[in-house]
Amino acid sequence: MSSSIGEKCTQIKQEYDGCFNSWYSEKFLKGDATPKCDDLFFKYKECLLKTLEEKKLDTLLADARKDNPFPNSASSSASSAGSSSESSK
């Protein structure tokens, strides 16, 4: 599993990755989209957001995400994708 850009987030990141990988292959691809890794993702993201601020990447990232990468997508939550992982409940 890959490291986090923030060294101190790598451990929680890899825990989350492990959870996501099994969810993706065993649940999501088989038609069950019930979330499973939200708690880990929340902890990981808390750490990551601090890192992005420290490295001054937060505004760079926010600017880049202003353009909708999938303008033709059927994804209805596209416009709120930047807010948080709330809607994955």
Partner: peptide
């Protein structure tokens, strides 16, 4: 390094 910044399943489309 590689980080997940955001991730969600669209409740309507399942994407």
């Amino acid at each position: 390094g590689c980080d997940v910044v955001d991730r969600q399943v669209d409740p309507v489309t399942g994407v």
